[in-house]
C-alpha cells in the first residue's frame, strides 16, 4: 500500500506545499508582522482553508486518475478495493493531520503565544474532522455517480467553499445577528477530543463502504 500512497501523493504534496509556502505567509502576514495577533478572524480563515485545500487536492488527484483510467488499470492488479481506496483515505488523513500540526506549530513559533497555538489546534481539529467526513462523502459520491458527474459537483462545492468565509461574514451571519466570535466560540466550546474521535471513526468507517461501491462503480 505504501507504493500506492507514494504514487497518489503527488497532488496532496503539491497542495500542502502550496499552502505552506504561499498561502500561509499570505494569510498570516498581518498577524506575524503586526501587533494584531489576537484577532479571531485569522483563526477563522484557517479552518476554511483546511477543508478547501484537502478537497482541492482530492479533486485534482481524482481528476488525474479519471483521465488516465487509473482505476481500471489498478483493478487488474492484485489489489482489492480496500487497498486502493485505503491509500487514498490515508493520504486525506495525513494531509489533514499535517495541516493542523503545521498551522498550529507555525503559530506557536511565530507568535510565541502558546494560548493562541492551542486555540488554533483545537479549532482545526474540529474543522479537520468535518473535512474528513466531507472527503469520505466525496469519495462515495465519486464512486456512486462517477467522476464525470460528481467531479463537477465537487468542483462547484469547492469554489463555493473558497467564498464561504466572506459569504458567512457578510451575508449569513449578520441576519442571524451572529458574529465570527460567536461561531468561533461555538466551535471551541465543543469537546474537540470527542469531535476528533467521532470524525476520525466515521471517516474510516466510510472506507469499506466506499470500497464496496467502487469495486463495481463507475469511475
Amino acid at each position: 500500500m505504501l507504493r500506492l500512497i507514494q504514487k497518489f501523493s503527488l497532488m496532496y504534496a503539491f497542495y500542502l506545499a502550496m499552502y505552506a509556502f504561499l498561502m500561509f505567509p499570505l494569510l498570516n502576514y498581518d498577524r506575524i508582522s503586526g501587533p494584531d495577533t489576537e484577532n479571531p478572524i485569522y483563526i477563522f480563515y484557517q479552518g476554511g482553508f483546511l477543508i478547501w485545500m484537502v478537497l482541492g487536492a482530492l479533486w485534482a488527484h481524482e481528476n488525474m486518475e479519471h483521465k488516465t483510467n487509473a482505476y481500471r488499470f489498478l483493478r487488474t492488479l492484485p489489489l482489492g478495493g480496500i487497498k486502493i481506496i485505503g491509500a487514498k483515505f490515508t493520504l486525506v488523513f495525513m494531509s489533514v493531520f499535517l495541516f493542523i500540526v503545521y498551522q498550529s506549530g507555525m503559530i506557536r513559533i511565530l507568535t510565541g503565544s502558546a494560548q493562541l497555538a492551542t486555540a488554533t489546534w483545537q479549532y482545526l481539529c474540529v474543522l479537520g474532522s468535518l473535512c474528513l467526513i466531507l472527503a469520505g462523502l466525496a469519495y462515495m459520491g465519486i464512486y456512486r455517480f462517477g467522476f464525470v458527474v460528481f467531479g463537477k459537483l465537487l468542483l462547484g462545492i469547492w469554489m463555493l467553499l473558497f467564498l464561504s468565509p466572506i459569504l458567512l461574514r457578510q451575508f449569513i451571519l449578520p441576519p442571524l445577528k451572529l458574529t465570527v466570535d460567536d461561531v468561533l466560540g461555538f466551535v471551541t466550546g465543543l469537546n474537540w477530543v470527542a469531535v476528533s474521535l467521532i470524525g476520525t471513526a466515521l471517516f474510516w468507517a466510510m472506507l469499506p463502504l466506499a470500497a464496496r461501491i467502487n469495486i463495481h462503480g463507475k469511475v
Binding site: R72, F73, T76, P78
Partner: peptide, 17 residues
C-alpha cells in the same frame, strides 16, 4: 487479491498510467 496474484490477465482494452 490472492486470485489476481495468480492470474495473468489481458483485457480487451489496455489501461496504464
Amino acid at each position: 487479491i490472492q486470485i489476481k496474484d495468480r492470474v495473468g490477465y489481458v483485457g480487451e482494452e489496455q489501461f496504464f498510467y
